[in-house]
Write a protein that binds this DNA or RNA. Structure first.
Ligand SMILES: [Mn+2]
Ligand SMILES: [Mn+2]
Length: 554
DNA sequence: ACCGGCCACACAGTC
DNA sequence: AGCTGACATG
DNA sequence: GACTGTGTGGCCCATGTCAGC
């Protein structure tokens, strides 16, 4: 047990952070909380210190039910009187009946055996079947609970207001993933967020309706997942029927809704529910909705409609991947409609053949080792290197205080990082920065940026994998005009063009002596995103090649 | 944005 | 026993 | 060989404990 570095960490940091969260949310969203919710917050604040601490522990752990005996916190003293207080204020409720499934989460296999299986009877082989056989007993749920309490006379409790807590966290973080844990990680110094200025003026959720709309989308997403998990595909059309009449009105839930439409539609395709899939896709404004529509229409033989969708895409593509898909589909469809056969563009990239012995390492590692002989150093970097360099080059623009993009102090990128709007809203500062990068010493800029911003959370930088030394070596050897060209394309579409970079970078001794190398093992092929970068490299005379690996059999 | 989304890869079926 | 996954923890 | 679909594994603090198998 080591002492935390951060002296601010008290034994009560969970409670302290929860209060910070409540304060922030009440200040920012007081108007959209209901009377009952504010009342509950008031009750919480009126509790004694220990009761507050225990309550926050309860809502931070996976419940909903807890055995009193499992609630032991050294910093709080005996649990029973604290629970008494929480029960008295109705912040906690006591179980009076529990289902077999709930029992399974609370009691061990041997405890359940002890109570429900007489020693002379055959014992179920594992816990699931044990729970099943308890179900078969058809006991009343309060009876089963009473039976178990004979071996553990302590109470079984659940915190109330869990859904309020979920709402508070959602309002604070703007998503359902982050939680009090993020405060803790911050306190522990495990994560550090760049101190960009927050603007409380622009809040994420405009109104109670916006919040509810988001929660509805999230719940439908949960249902989707649960149905898949349970193998209940037949219920998916009904889920789609719930999704379709929705009309998301708030920006805060739009992206989520579109993604949900796409995900669900994809599953409906697999069920041959093409009609419904088409309806969902046509409501979605997110790639690959239009591509999927074109493919469905092609597969059902509606070539006229398929052509129309392709033309719509080509007219104003959402991204390059979408345009390429339309360019592949359209000629096929045109031929069906009696058009001429068209010659296809063929790529040809510089390549080498490698024959290496099989090893336990990945094919990329093995290829890197084989290439070590011809180069000073070969690094297996994939997307991490170029994304890190991008983050270093444009840190100030990424974290610039554009209105409305920084809501909370736990962001690793602005809210619009992957939107079309990102580039447009920072047009001027990005242009100025590009100019500066063109004119000044890139190696110095990148190294200084690395040292200044190292350890701050950023979607682009990979501090662990990409060392300062590697950044310096790359900045010395890769010609600035190459890096600038790469960054231009990344800025053009930061979402799409952050992937597809070659696996390896091989570095020589002198400036210009380097090569980006995509490793392809037997059976692997270039992906579309990789081809797009390789084409771009060709067009800009950036040295890149594909290394086709074969196994040397001995 | 961790019961999810994103990568890259492996493999199979089609033309 | 030895391994794994879920969970809680700082 | 190109294209398409599908399914996979890793990656997201690190570490210890416990229950299950
Ligand atoms: Mn790769
Ligand atoms: Mn590769």
């Amino acid at each position: 047990m080591t002492e935390p570095d951060n002296a601010a960490l008290t034994p009560f940091y969970y409670r302290d952070n929860y209060l910070r969260l409540c304060d922030t949310v009440e200040a920012q969203y007081g108007d959209i909380l209901g009377a009952a919710e504010r009342e509950m917050l008031h009750t919480f604040r009126s509790l004694g210190f220990d009761a507050q601490c225990l309550y926050v522990r309860l809502i931070s752990r996976t419940g909903p039910w807890f055995r009193e005996s499992k609630l032991a916190y050294a910093e709080l003293g005996p649990t029973p009187p604290i629970l008494d207080e929480l029960l008295a204020h109705e912040m906690v409720e006591e179980a009076s009946a529990l289902s077999p499934a709930e029992l399974g989460k609370l009691f061990t296999r041997s405890e359940l055996l002890q109570v429900f299986c007489p020693p002379d009877q055959p014992t179920p082989p594992d816990k699931p079947s044990l729970l099943h056989s308890i179900e078969q007993l058809q006991l009343r749920e309060d009876v089963t609970l009473a039976a178990l309490c004979t071996l553990d006379s302590q109470r079984i409790v659940a915190p109330r207001g869990v859904e309020l807590t979920e709402y508070l966290q959602l309002l604070f973080f703007g998503n359902r993933q982050q939680s009090l844990t993020d405060f803790v990680l911050q306190d522990l110094g495990l994560t550090r967020y760049y101190p960009y200025p927050l603007d409380p003026e622009h809040r994420l959720f405009a109104s109670r309706e916006a919040l509810e709309e988001y929660v509805t989308c999230a719940t439908l997403g949960d249902t989707h997942y649960t149905l898949l998990e349970a193998g209940e595909q037949e219920a998916l059309p009904a889920l789609a029927a719930q999704l379709l009449p929705m009309n998301p009105r708030f920006a805060s839930s739009e992206k989520r809704w579109h993604r949900l439409c796409n995900n669900l539609a994809r599953d409906l395709e697999r069920l041959d529910e093409c009609e419904m899939a088409l309806q969902l896709y046509s409501r979605s404004q997110r790639h690959p909705a239009r591509e999927r529509r074109a493919r469905i229409l092609e597969s059902v033989g509606d070539w006229t409609a398929a052509r129309a969708v392709c033309e719509e895409i080509l007219d104003s593509p959402w991204c390059e991947a979408e345009r390429e898909a339309a360019e592949r589909i359209l000629p096929r469809v045109n031929r069906k409609l009696g058009g001429p056969r068209q010659a296809r563009r063929r790529d040809s990239f510089a390549d080498i053949a490698l024959t290496v012995p099989r090893g336990s390492e990945s094919v990329e590692e093995l290829a890197a080792q084989a290439l070590q002989q011809q180069w000073q150093a070969v690094h297996y970097v994939e997307n991490a290197l170029m994304n890190t360099l991008f983050g270093l080059a444009f840190w100030e623009q990424i974290f610039a205080p554009v209105p409305g993009v920084f809501h909370i102090p736990f962001q690793s990128a602005p809210a619009d990082m992957y939107d079309r709007a990102f580039r447009i809203r920072r047009e001027h500062s990005l242009a100025t920065r590009m100019q500066q990068l063109r004119e000044e010493n890139l190696a110095t800029i990148l190294a200084e940026s690395y040292q200044r911003y190292q350890h701050y959370e950023c979607r682009w930088t990979h501090w662990r994998y990409i060392s300062l030394e590697l950044v310096e070596a790359c900045a010395r050897i890769i010609p600035p005009e190459h890096l600038l060209a790469i960054w231009e394309r990344m800025l053009f579409d930061p979402a799409e063009n952050r992937r597809g970079f070659p696996d390896l970078i091989a570095l020589g001794a002198a400036p210009g002596e380097y090569c980006l190398i995509e490793v392809k093992g037997p059976g692997d092929a270039l992906q579309d995103s990789q081809k797009r970068w390789l084409r771009y490299f060709q067009a800009h005379d950036i040295p890149a090649q594909v290394a086709w690996v074969e196994w040397r059999d001995d």
